[in-house]
Amino acid sequence: MVENNSWSRFMTHCILILGVALVVFPVYLAVIASTHEAGTFLSGTLPLLPGSQGLENYKQVLFEGRSRAGTPPLHTMLWNSFVMAMTITIGKLLVSLLSAFAIVYFRFPFRMFFFWVIFLTLMLPVEVRIVPTFQVVADLGMLNSFAGLSIPLIASATATFLFRQFFMTIPEEMLEAARVDGAGPLKFFKDILLPLSITNIAALFVIMFIYGWNQYLWPLLITTDPEYYTIVMGIQRMVTGADAEPLWHLVMATVVLAALPPILVILFMQRLFVKGLTETEK
């Protein structure tokens, strides 16, 4: 049993504050670095107070881009990443919900065989199957397109498994009551299963959005047109694409803007996200 006294509370708060500082300090440095001029970093020192060039730096990366690094304006890459992440997230949720629904509530030959085939794909991440996937996408003419960026990453064995496990906890009486009321399979799915799955959907939405937003290898492989560059690709090209030293003040401004959408998604869905991860009874 944890001793409840002032000393233990003091030590607990110190440990928490230290942990928060370790996480927040690199973010603080990135924000500070994005507000200074390029010459500030040539001296080899990193200031700890904001500079006066923040608005100019953010305006440059948002609307002008870096021609030497081959990156388009940041608003284009942010939009591309947003479309890709949302398409992957919504597609994964729809496919996983319907797959789990079919596996749990329909009786058809080799039902469990197909489930285990889906589950075993967890051992085959994108990096393992990237060459045949690229060949298929290229043969279908989906290079340099939002379809090529998103569709190959939509299937999710993890989400299918989690939804299946949740659907199996729903009492059989609900299904029988829906049948008595004349509800068909789709009505039962829409009016009963989906409302009960809101917290699970919210938790998976956050995880999958961040997964889609942070994709680097797959977009790098199938996009050669700068109009389809994602924000993660843009950061990498700004660091390594130019012949001269990277302009770290612009790189840090790009990093700060790239981190905002995932942070906003987490903040907006925080309550449902935590509830979906911790709730055991519906």
Rank of each mutant, 00 (worst) to 15 (best):
A85K: 04
M123K: 13
M142L: 10
L162Y: 01
H75Q: 14
I154E: 05
A159C: 04
Y229V: 08
S67I: 01
P125M: 11
D225E: 14
V180T: 13
I207G: 07
L48P: 08
F167M: 06
T199S: 06
T35E: 03
K282S: 00
L247T: 02
L97R: 04
A30S: 13
D181S: 13
P125Q: 12
V61D: 11
T158L: 11
F10G: 15
I198R: 03
L162M: 01
H249M: 00
F25A: 11
R66C: 05
G148N: 06
T133W: 02
T230A: 04
T12V: 10
Q270F: 07
L97S: 09
L194G: 08
S8T: 15
I266P: 12
N214P: 01
P246V: 06
H36R: 09
T278M: 12
T121I: 06
L221I: 08
R111M: 12
A203Q: 03
A259R: 04
L120W: 08
L217K: 09
Q60A: 15
V95I: 12
P195C: 09
V104Y: 00
A21P: 02
M84I: 12
N4M: 15
W213I: 14
V265P: 15
I235P: 05
P261H: 10
M168L: 06
T133K: 02
I231A: 11
V126M: 07
G51K: 07
E56P: 00
F189A: 03
N200W: 06
F161Q: 05
Y211P: 04
N144P: 02
P261I: 01
A157H: 01
L140G: 07
T240N: 05
V232I: 15
V274G: 00
S197G: 04
W7E: 10
L149R: 06
V180L: 15
A183K: 01
T133Q: 03
L62Y: 12
L55S: 10
I222R: 01
H249N: 03
N5A: 12
F268A: 15
P262C: 10
F209Y: 01
E56L: 04
S34A: 13
A102E: 11
L18K: 14
I222H: 03
G44S: 09
N214A: 09
